[in-house]
């Protein structure tokens, strides 16, 4: 919020008139909008990421946090080791079937509001190791992702860009519109379903397909919805 008048423009409700000569110093707005703007401004400048490196991409994540690229400029240098204290999960690397179980658990342990940034080709969609028998083709098959940063690995600049995009996303969230994000709605929000390590990884949400397949191994089956 470097520029005062930009901020006022953002805050101002266009339906409520303000004389032209006062635009640079006055904004008239409704309570929700005021609350959201101030609240979001606080949140977006103090995102605490979780210390959580999966693979090669984590090295570039550390480089981003270090002095040259300096993630602290965005208020994101407070990297917490505990999911209970984190706002952002940077999924930085290849997600394997063995690892997806702890990842979903960690995600469930994070307090809301919480965000997920998929860093690198692997976390976005499997990357170079996609065909591997132990690799999950993208973390979004198990938990919701807010920002995707492509690259193998993404350069620190690309990661910073992704983080700025996340800040933009936070700016757009509203306290009054309860449908915009799950955590402003009524009641507790749903937990992500924990996968189970079986003969292969089992996603309980797909149990019905599994049962159907077991019943009818003969017939060729229909491809399922890819982002079930």
């Amino acid at each position: 919020m470097t520029n005062n008048s930009d901020f006022l423009k953002e805050l101002h409700d266009p339906e409520l008139p303000v004389p032209d000569d006062m635009r640079s110093s006055v904004a008239v707005t409704n309570l929700d909008k005021l609350m959201s703007t101030v609240y979001n401004w606080g949140r977006r400048n103090s995102i605490w990421p979780m210390a959580f490196g999966l693979a090669c991409c984590a090295i570039e994540m550390i480089a981003t946090a270090a002095s040259r690229y300096d993630q602290a400029r965005f208020g994101m240098e407070v990297i917490r080791a505990s999911p209970r204290q984190s706002d952002l999960m940077l999924v930085s690397g290849t997600v394997t079937k063995k690892m997806v179980v702890p990842i979903v658990r960690l995600y469930n342990q994070m307090p809301e509001p919480k965000y997920v940034l998929a860093m690198g080709a692997c976390a976005c969609g499997g990357g170079p190791f996609k065909d591997g028998y132990n690799v999950v083709g993208g973390i979004d098959k198990y938990i919701p992702v807010d920002v995707y940063v492509p690259g193998c690995p993404p350069t620190p600049q690309a990661l910073l860009h992704g983080l700025i995009m996340l800040q933009k996303k936070i700016d757009g969230q509203s306290l009054s519109n309860r449908n915009s994000v799950p955590w402003y709605g009524r009641g507790p929000s749903d937990e992500a379903t924990m996968p189970v390590l079986g003969p292969d990884i089992i996603d309980p949400r797909q149990a019905h397909i599994l049962r159907r397949q077991a019943g009818a191994t003969e017939q060729p089956s229909e491809p399922a919805d890819t982002d079930a």
Partner: peptide, 19 residues
């Protein structure tokens, strides 16, 4: 590759696997 897999995912279960 997802399109060819009934689960839409990188998974394969043994024959006769009963969940």
């Amino acid at each position: 590759a997802e399109q060819d897999n009934p689960y839409g995912k990188n998974v394969r279960y043994p024959d006769g696997f009963v969940l």
